[in-house]
Amino acid sequence: MTHDAGFWVLQALNALQLSMLLFLLSVGLTVIFGLMHFVNLAHGALYALGAYVAASVAGAWGGFWVGLIVAPIAVAAMGVVLYGGLIRRMRRSGPMAQVLVTFGLIFALLDLTRIIWGDVALASDVPALLEGQVRLLGVDYPAYRLFVIGLGLAVLAVLAFVLGRTQIGAMIRAGVDNDAMAACLGIDVERLFFVVFCVGCALAGLAGAVAAPLLSVTPDMGLQILIPVLIVIVIGGLGSLKGAIAGALIYGVVQTFGAVLAPQLSSVLIYALLALVLVTRPTGLFPAKG
């Protein structure tokens, strides 16, 4: 099959769209890791929670936009509860114990969504403003997908600014580099952890709200996205914004063009790439620390 330029533009936009969705999810996870040195496996479950909240809110109070605002707040509130109830107490227990607590959370949150919302998928529609397609670079592309790309880039820009140019960003970078030293310099590291954890949760909620009209809102959506997100942050290197965006772009491109160019290999391709990266660069492409 031969394809014209428009086809490749379309696929490039598809790759970018998938990348941005994954970026929204992985950036929170990777910065939490950078600071606190543990991988929150329940991040996917929080994303599912965000999708459910957004879909319910949009359905009940009419409007995707309300859902888009409420979902991150609700998931951040969940983050406050989790931090106060579990994570803070686990601070000294070592990364393995923390990973396991979050593994337990996956189980618990999965069944909680089933108990609250049932097993049947929830409805969630694209907002009227973003219905239809937009003509761009010679192709018609869904307006909603362009919105996802735009939102991802906006979040990237804001995070890059906050981390790179503001005082709190400097504190976070110091904490990632060496938290003990940062504490010696008078930075309230505990509070920093708390803020970053909540922001990470809010971003997961935002990703869920954005994904709801695009994908299906089912109880297992959190489990399904978890592995892609972990692949993204590990390829990119843990703890860095640069790693999250690089990993997300690599994943999006490999998945999208793999599906087109080598459909037989497409599901193995990304794992093979992950293995290759880890063999050649055991800490990913752009780790926060050497």
Binding site: F33, V39, P95, I227, L230, I231, V234, L238, Q264, S267, V268, Y271, A272, L274, A275, L278, V279, P282, T283, G284
Partner: peptide, 27 residues
């Protein structure tokens, strides 16, 4: 192959190989 990786990277590397085996057998 995974011997050089540690911590979370080791976990992810083994996950990658496990998933490759899964996909291979599935398909």
């Amino acid at each position: 192959v995974c011997a050089r990786s540690h911590g979370i990277y080791f976990i992810m590397a083994t996950l990658a190989f496990g998933q490759m085996a899964y996909s291979y057998i599935f398909e």
